[in-house]
């Protein structure tokens, strides 16, 4: 708990640039409320959850930093998460706020951007870019278009990543999230259509069924006889061989010999 000022400082400096803290304790909510929330008044995220098995450590406090794609880029004592490191990490992120004053013609587009309505912002920016005669206004429109493109690429990367992994469920989720952010724009409409089409595909249904079956089976595995556990896992693996959950089931089955 001595590290609260450090976490607060990072939050004050970097939250509006896309850096978030999730301070996790498995203790009683009442204890977290009194000893942390009321006593220290942090503005960063505080969460009650038991993650001791997922995020293993011998000593507390300990921290992990995940990048925009959810990949771990740091593990160690929280004091090692310096302002210099965070500056570097957030540099590549798509900003969530327009960070400078732009021409007043773009007021509507900027307002929409700051609210996360990228579809609306994109449409309005395009109109300004096409109709502007003033070079400065044009340059500002290009700048805003650049910020919007980062968000477009963020969704594209997520969709491609899920597609490459054969994870149609994650792919649909990424498309739907992108469609919601870019609602009303051409690209938003394209993603919405792609999500709907993909949801109808056998591949998506298989991914979904395999994941559902595996999650149903998982908590029961420990109480089953190994031969039965293997049989049930192999059933899923055989029925849905090309899905992430099917592959995981095949891996799990190897343990029950």
């Amino acid at each position: 708990m001595t590290g609260v000022p450090h976490l607060q400082e990072l939050t004050d400096k970097f939250r509006d640039k896309g850096f978030e803290i999730v301070a996790v304790s498995s203790e009683d909510a009442a204890l977290i409320q009194s000893k942390m929330i009321d006593a220290k008044k942090p503005t960063f995220g505080v969460v009650k959850a038991d993650i001791s098995k997922l995020y293993e450590t011998r000593g507390i406090p300990h921290s992990w930093v995940l990048d925009a794609d959810g990949k771990c880029i740091y593990k160690g004592h929280p004091s090692g998460v310096t302002a210099e490191k965070v500056t570097e990490w957030v540099a590549s992120l798509a900003p969530t706020k327009v960070d400078k004053e732009l021409a007043k013609e773009l007021n509507g587009a900027v307002k929409a951007f700051d609210k996360g309505e990228y579809g609306k912002s994109l449409n309005e920016t395009k109109i300004v870019a096409e109709s502007a005669t003033d070079e400065l206004v044009k340059a500002d429109a290009d700048y805003l278009m650049g910020l919007l493109n980062k968000h477009v690429n963020l969704t594209k990367n997520k969709v491609e990543g899920a597609s490459a992994a054969g994870d149609r469920v994650a792919q649909v989720k990424a498309l739907e999230e992108g469609a919601a952010k870019f609602k009303g724009s051409e690209i938003g409409g394209t993603w919405d259509t792609e999500a709907k089409e993909l949801k109808k595909s056998k591949e998506y249904k298989d991914c979904n069924s395999a994941a559902t079956d595996l999650e149903k089976l998982r908590p029961k595995l420990e109480d089953m006889k190994p031969a039965n556990a293997r049989k049930e896992l192999e059933k899923i693996a055989k029925k849905y061989p090309e899905t992430p959950a099917g592959k995981e089931a095949a891996e799990l089955a190897k343990r029950y010999n």
């Binding site: 708990m1 803290i21 992990w64 925009a68 740091y74 992120l93």
Partner: peptide, 11 residues
């Protein structure tokens, strides 16, 4: 889409 720092702590 964000950089997130997970910190495990205790009171």
């Amino acid at each position: 889409g964000k950089v997130v720092m997970i910190e495990r702590w205790a009171t």
